[in-house]
Amino acid sequence: MELWMGVKLLLGNRKRGIFSLLGITGAVMGIIMTLSLGRGGREMIDSDLLAMGENRILIGGSTLTSRDLQMVEAMDFVEYGMFPESRVTIGEYVFIGYPKRALLKKGLKNLRLNEVIIDKNQMDNKPGERLSIGGRTYTVGGTYGERNPLETMRGGKRLMVSMETLNRNFGRGNYKSMVIAFPRGENSQEYIPIIINQLSRTRGVNDRIEILETPEIYKSVERVRVLVNRVLLTISFIGFGIGTFSVVNLIGSSVKSNMSTMGILKSMGMERKRIVRIFFYEGLMVVVLGSLIGGILGVLGSYLGGRIVGIEPKFNFLEIILGIGLGMGVSLGLGLRPGIKGSKIDVIDALKG
């Protein structure tokens, strides 16, 4: 009975109900998009060794070799090193050389000579199959999915190989720049002089090592990313605030306009908690329906927004459920106050409206 009466009250307040519904829908949609795209962007940066946001530096010199890389990686405070130029194009294929530590950082295995890891978004070969490219035979050792939009916009089918394979098969070995990454949270600035001095010892006067990019560039990018996430979260909470206000307004106006009906129900002996339950169901329907619609639109919006900005959304449904549940609880908790207050009114006063 209380549920049916709640439905009738809601249908009698269509305009206010729609306003409340839109507030809850927008808030839920905003929270889902913020959490999913934020997490997806973070994972993309973590999985891509050349993406902005890493705690790293870029050094340059007239000649940098695998020996220099080994020297750098022997330092305890270095997480990994790699050469951004370690790529060779053969026809439609692009061979990208990765050192062992860089492969492990990406969650991949170390590669043997002439073993490749292919981008599964471009090629459907299975592990163990053989590929004949440029007169050489390669064995597929595994697959991965490239997510960095800066990489996917480039042409060619991507093949990861070890630095040994790249240097031996294509005559590479000398590079102009090297990425050196440090564990997150480390103060990499204090390590820069040590690295420069170590690499400069075995060089001539004309072969200088210099810093091309410092961690500050990437830290500023990270600050922008955090700022954007905070702005989106703030917008979501403002949306929930509007939704909560609209639910309070809906129940409050419903109590006010149905005062005489409450008087009749109380005169017939209906208990206060049953009267409160009527208004609770009215608000609950708006909150649940708005959350469902917002949830669907949030997921669709995350995929659409992800396509536009080149980020694959990652959904942590526990976070989403907790966020929505908290918002629903606050909205209904505050929204019930007018209903509880209205249920305490004297029967005579209620009948007078």
Score class of each variant (00 low, 15 high):
residue 4 W to I: 14
residue 6 G to K: 06
residue 10 L to P: 04
residue 13 N to Q: 12
residue 13 N to R: 05
residue 13 N to T: 05
residue 15 K to R: 12
residue 17 G to E: 06
residue 19 F to Y: 09
residue 25 T to L: 10
residue 28 V to H: 04
residue 31 I to W: 06
residue 31 I to R: 06
residue 33 M to S: 10
residue 35 L to Y: 08
residue 37 L to D: 11
residue 37 L to K: 10
residue 42 R to L: 12
residue 44 M to K: 14
residue 46 D to V: 13
residue 47 S to W: 13
residue 53 G to H: 05
residue 56 R to M: 07
residue 59 I to C: 02
residue 71 M to W: 05
residue 73 E to L: 11
residue 75 M to C: 10
residue 82 M to P: 09
residue 86 S to K: 13
residue 87 R to G: 08
residue 95 F to P: 06
residue 95 F to S: 06
residue 97 G to Y: 02
residue 98 Y to N: 05
residue 104 L to P: 02
residue 104 L to Q: 12
residue 107 G to A: 03
residue 108 L to P: 02
residue 113 L to E: 15
residue 117 I to E: 06
residue 117 I to M: 06
residue 119 D to F: 04
residue 120 K to E: 15
residue 121 N to F: 04
residue 122 Q to S: 10
residue 125 N to Q: 14
residue 126 K to T: 12
residue 128 G to C: 05
residue 132 S to D: 13
residue 135 G to H: 07
residue 136 R to P: 08
residue 137 T to W: 00
residue 143 T to Y: 13
residue 148 N to Q: 12
residue 155 G to M: 13
residue 162 S to F: 12
residue 166 L to R: 11
residue 172 R to G: 12
residue 173 G to E: 11
residue 175 Y to C: 08
residue 178 M to F: 07
residue 181 A to N: 12
residue 181 A to Q: 13
residue 182 F to T: 11
residue 182 F to I: 09
residue 183 P to G: 10
residue 187 N to D: 15
residue 191 Y to P: 07
residue 191 Y to F: 12
residue 192 I to W: 10
residue 197 N to A: 06
residue 198 Q to Y: 06
residue 199 L to D: 03
residue 202 T to K: 09
residue 209 I to G: 00
residue 211 I to L: 09
residue 217 I to Y: 07
residue 223 R to M: 02
residue 224 V to I: 08
residue 228 V to I: 09
residue 231 V to M: 01
residue 237 F to D: 00
residue 238 I to C: 01
residue 242 I to Y: 02
residue 251 I to A: 00
residue 261 T to N: 07
residue 271 E to Q: 09
residue 273 K to P: 03
residue 273 K to S: 12
residue 274 R to I: 01
residue 288 V to Y: 00
residue 289 L to Q: 03
residue 292 L to V: 13
residue 294 G to L: 03
residue 295 G to C: 01
residue 299 V to D: 07
residue 301 G to T: 04
residue 303 Y to D: 07
residue 304 L to K: 14
residue 307 R to P: 00
residue 309 V to F: 13
residue 313 P to M: 00
residue 332 L to W: 03
residue 332 L to K: 04
residue 334 L to K: 05
residue 341 K to F: 05
residue 343 S to A: 15
residue 346 D to A: 03
residue 350 A to E: 07
